[in-house]
Simulated assay, not measured.
Amino acid sequence: MIQETLREAEERMKKAVEATQHEFSLIRTGRANPAILEHVRVDAYGTTLPLNQVASISVPEPRQLLITPFDRNILPQIEKGILKSDVGITPTNDGSALRLNIPPLNEERRKELIKQVHQKAEQGRASIRTVRHEAIKKLQTAKKASEISENEEKRAEEQVQKLVDKYTAEIDHLMKVKEAELMEV
């Protein structure tokens, strides 16, 4: 019972770290990264589709994304989708593809993005704390039901705390890496 609770808690903590890492990848740095277009939706063929299902996205230069539609007829819809999204970059249409030139970040924008990184990191840490809380509650319930002894409960709680420390440190490390990436000129 204890091992199952610990395994489940660790699994959920890993997922919290992965989710935080994914959120960090969506924050735009001065470099071109196709992940910034992940939330772009395109109205095409009578439905709304993710951009990656109607076009290929490549990085021809460090500060440029090239969006090539699979069907040229939907180029205007892709352009509208990008303009409606929160990417904050106006695409250049050359008739067969769209180019997104990523401007260098100014100091003010860098500070805003670092604040976002800190918020996302705190959300990740909060998720980990929630998992800890739930795991400890399960252990206390098991102790009350006399399924485990008080000593077993204490040892298991210490193991849960070690997992929390490990995965929180991982999120902190990812946050520092992303901050360094944002401060690069």
Rank of each mutant, 00 (worst) to 15 (best):
M1W: 04
M1Q: 06
I2K: 02
I2N: 03
I2T: 05
E8F: 04
E8I: 00
A9V: 07
E10N: 13
E11M: 11
R12K: 15
A16F: 03
V17G: 02
V17A: 04
A19D: 09
A19S: 12
T20V: 10
E23T: 12
S25C: 08
S25Q: 12
N33E: 07
P34L: 06
A35M: 11
A35R: 10
L37N: 02
R41C: 00
Y45G: 06
G46Y: 09
T47A: 14
T48A: 07
L49W: 11
P50M: 05
N52Y: 09
V54Q: 01
V54Y: 02
S56A: 13
P62V: 08
T68Q: 13
P69D: 06
P69I: 03
F70W: 14
F70G: 10
D71A: 11
R72V: 12
I74A: 04
L75C: 02
L75W: 02
L75S: 02
Q77P: 02
E79T: 09
E79S: 08
K80L: 09
L83V: 15
L83P: 04
D86V: 15
V87A: 05
P91I: 06
T92E: 14
D94I: 04
G95T: 05
S96T: 11
S96I: 11
A97Q: 12
R99K: 12
R99F: 11
R99S: 08
L100P: 01
N101A: 08
N101R: 01
N101S: 10
I102K: 00
I102S: 00
I102L: 00
P104G: 06
L105T: 05
N106V: 03
E107M: 08
E107W: 05
E108I: 06
R109S: 13
K111V: 06
K111F: 06
K111T: 08
Q116C: 06
V117W: 00
V117I: 08
H118E: 11
A121N: 05
E122F: 06
E122M: 05
E122W: 07
Q123G: 10
G124L: 00
V131F: 01
V131S: 01
H133N: 13
H133K: 15
A135D: 04
A135K: 06
A135T: 07
I136H: 08
K137D: 13
Q140K: 15
I148A: 09
E153L: 10
K154V: 14
R155S: 14
A156C: 13
E158Q: 15
E158Y: 11
E158A: 15
Q159Y: 09
Q161Y: 10
K162Y: 13
L163E: 10
K166V: 04
T168Q: 03
I171E: 00
D172N: 11
D172Q: 07
D172R: 08
H173D: 06
V177R: 07
E179A: 03
E179W: 00
V185R: 09
